[in-house]
Amino acid sequence: MLLEVKDLYVEIDGQMILKGLNLQIDRGEVHAIMGPNGSGKSTLAKVLAGHPSYEVKKGEILYEGKDLLALEPDERAREGVFMAFQYPVEIPGVSNSQFLRLAYNEKMKHCGGEELDPLEFNDLLKEKAKTVEMDPSFFKRSVNEGFSGGEKKRNEILQMAVLDPKLAVLDETDSGLDIDALRIVSEGVNKLKSDENAIVLVTHYQRLLNYIVPDYVHVLADGKIVKEGGKELALELEEKGYDSFKAAGN
């Protein structure tokens, strides 16, 4: 098992958001976590990445059988956990290629792989950028600065392509995307999908799942999973809305 979340309780600013969440994810699987606003979807994503504002009050998370919560955010990343941000952060003055090369080399150092100099890395980056149809002119630009919403999300998937995670959590990657950007991002994710990694799509809408087809759908309401099923569950949700599941959760 790649990831096991057991009876997880998480608090932010004194408010309990996740209330006994259980989840199991294995390599080669695509999972969708769906739910209404405030159900705790993004909290789950951030806790997996190790955001310092979220406090785990109870439960555990095992990643490759080890205690994920014992690892710092950067250690998790180097171990292969990746979160695509809902709101990617702008870093003025730091170029995309410089940032990505540092991240790539940190991971290589950790895994005993070969670190790349700027020229070598540039070749790698050019190759990876094709995954999300990103123009090399973005490499020199400051990280996310002045990027449109769609460009920021593509940049997240480019980072995923470079860092090659084992567990990729995509937090509302579809939000704010027009139909073309949604297609490009989804195709990018599909290309990165393999038997070796798992992808977790955190989303409010079924729309994304037309492009990236999940093996499992989990419905989250009020801090816990209230229903699980295959991809057809997403369609049922689209039809009936979240209200019926909220009731079931209470």
Partner: peptide, 16 residues
Amino acid sequence: FYLLSRGLNEDLARNL
């Protein structure tokens, strides 16, 4: 947090 989440250690993230 953004830089840490990409695997940069704290010193490196702060320096960058």
